[in-house]
């Protein structure tokens, strides 16, 4: 299974999930991202989940843990590209991404982080 690539771009970490992840792979992605947030000054984390056809209770819980961990370090998390079918399953299951923002695509996510930075600085 391909590793999830993580790019760093002007204070934002961008992780693009490539294919279905097992629980241990999701946990390892969470740890890698949190480790990079604590090393450098990171203001945002973007996770592209458009390749996932299931976001179940474990995946959602792990994304929420990542987002709340990131928030403690002053970084905002944006989950990008939740497929419509996946969103429907999450709602029916009762799952919410309460600690993360969501956006339809990468541009929208970066825009969201920009405006958050603007509000903070300006």
């Amino acid at each position: 299974m391909p590793e999830t690539p993580i790019l760093a771009h002007s204070g934002v970490l961008i992780a693009s999930i490539q294919s279905a992840l097992s629980d241990s792979e999701i946990l390892s992605l969470r740890s890698q991202l949190l480790a990079r947030i604590s090393h450098k000054s990171v203001r945002g984390v973007v996770i592209d989940v458009s390749a996932l056809d299931v976001l179940d209770s474990f995946a959602t819980r792990t994304l929420n843990e990542l987002a709340s961990g990131a928030r403690l370090r002053g970084a905002q998390t944006v989950v990008v590209g939740i497929q419509p079918d996946v969103a429907l399953s999450m709602v029916l299951l009762g799952l919410t991404l309460r600690d993360a923002e969501t956006a339809l695509d990468l541009d929208a996510a970066l825009g969201l982080l920009e405006s958050a930075a603007g509000r903070r600085d300006g």
Partner: peptide, 17 residues
């Protein structure tokens, strides 16, 4: 349907876990 496929896959994921 695709939404039903996603729902079934999600349910299997929960039970298997």
């Amino acid at each position: 349907s695709r939404p039903d496929q996603a729902l079934l896959a999600t349910a299997i994921s929960e039970l298997a876990r």
